[in-house]
Design a protein around this nucleic acid. Sequence first.
DNA 1: CTGTTAGCGCCTTCAG
DNA 2: CTGAAGGCGCTAACAG
Lengths: 325, 325
Amino acid sequence: MKRTTIKDLAQALQVNVSTVSRALNNHPDVSDALREKIKQLAEALHYTPNLTAVYLQSRKTKTIGLILAEIGQFFIPSVIQGITSILDAKGYKLVILASNDKQSKEADLIKMCCYTQMDGIMLSLSSATKNLDHLAIANEYDIPIILFDKIIEQRKYSSITINDASCAEKCTSYLLQQQCKHILGVFGNKDLSLSINRLNGFTKAFGIKNPIAFTTVFAANIQEAKQLVQEALQTHADIDGMFCMSDEVLIGATSALHAQQKLLTIRTVCISDGQLINYHVPPIAYMKHDGASMGHAVAIQLLHEIEATEKVEPIFLQMDTKFVQ
Amino acid sequence: MKRTTIKDLAQALQVNVSTVSRALNNHPDVSDALREKIKQLAEALHYTPNLTAVYLQSRKTKTIGLILAEIGQFFIPSVIQGITSILDAKGYKLVILASNDKQSKEADLIKMCCYTQMDGIMLSLSSATKNLDHLAIANEYDIPIILFDKIIEQRKYSSITINDASCAEKCTSYLLQQQCKHILGVFGNKDLSLSINRLNGFTKAFGIKNPIAFTTVFAANIQEAKQLVQEALQTHADIDGMFCMSDEVLIGATSALHAQQKLLTIRTVCISDGQLINYHVPPIAYMKHDGASMGHAVAIQLLHEIEATEKVEPIFLQMDTKFVQ
DNA sequence: CTGTTAGCGCCTTCAG
DNA sequence: CTGAAGGCGCTAACAG
């Protein structure tokens, strides 16, 4: 079907396209009578603006790219949910891009976002990414970028995370309060600064002199987590507490506990988005890493930077988390 | 930064824009020498085509809308992964749209896809959707739609699902083979035909005359599944087998089993995407509902319909699944 | 082989 | 208040 255009309306009403354009955009320089007539006809003919043309003209696309290293992570859906709930209301669209944790792909996607005129980019870094040189192109194109969740320390782009170290520390302190004597820390991919930050929080909880034993393992995926925890449990029969830095490693870890009949004897805490974990038996205390509110925050900040008339200073937000038990 | 355009290149080289356009698009009507010169300059000036302009001109956007009723479902990330892996290679972008299981929102999003010139739509229906009248607008705009996963029976749009009834039947038969005497069937939202189809497969497994007892519950979410299974277990102490139609209900259901110390005594099967379930203790047999390959299939078929020069007949594909134990 | 012209659909001066 | 003209960046006839 040929779409009706502003030109069709103009022709039908024997007025100029510019008049139609003005009427439709509620420009004051149009008589109320004419505006009404135009709007009615537009309605009748199911006119809808050709947004591609609008975009070309305005040099915006109302489209935002979301580059994800690991789309399969448990809290990603809620992040997406949180983002779209904000973007939808403002007429923006969200394009999902998967870097599959490869920096080269990440760089390609950023280029792609620039070439396709995305208005902004949300980026959760690949574990291999150690510097942000490949984001420079976005600066050239004046496309704001927000880093979130998996980031590296820097001062150039806004970033939104939780306080990884502090979350891990609080979780671990909880185990210490519960009188655990040997704590197993289960972390994710060692290449992620997020893992290192959480590791630092974990060790910090033990204090300077350290009468309590701890063991740590790093697992890049669920399977590895299960494997490593199993081994750790065999090596250290006295482990009586476990901290898991994510839902992913938790799954593997609890599977290992379960297999060794230690589900009830090893006290567990976790940083979790709070979905799955609620159905664990026995209940597991956790620091809630809420994807939806992180998504909100990311979207709001990015829109802010996009719609600002002049360059805004980056912010470096660490979101509040709460401990649930 | 002002982006360099083909006009800039033309000016610099004192040739016409159309020549530049031709050179860049490898049109044969350009001398090799000139083409080289143009391409080199383009490279040097970091020229990249303004795709918005290309889209306006071509009346395509290389963008596809994915409308999801429940973005939080476990197999959605792998579906997205599967889709993007195909689309990426073909230069298409994927826009994620959440209907939050509301038909009115679903209708709005479809309109939106039409207005923003999406080249195609992938749609997993809301549980409230009982007819497809609100898709008619996409026909007017000549935008192909593929239904997948949550669909209703129809012959107008291509659809891709698994064979829900048969999957459920096979799972249930497995329980019967294992000599279960009273089987609990745990289903999702009763409004979904997907649930009803799986229910039909479930009951079919018991055959005409039916010496084996069964009980069924329908749960719209994890919490409800837990609750209802708990109640069922209390009412029917003889339940010794359980079929769960999805990972979601499985989580709630096993949590209930666990709480009542029946994890080891009630044999369980499930239709699952195969991620989480691998880490269950004890192991759970399941029919694998692979999100990634479903995503592949959906993307391939949609691209096929988009790029076809003439109208293609819809297909109604039920994907193969395999039983894992 | 290259240039000219026109147009995709819309918005935005500039006139009147 | 309305019309005319130009342009966003690119492609596609039509000439020569």
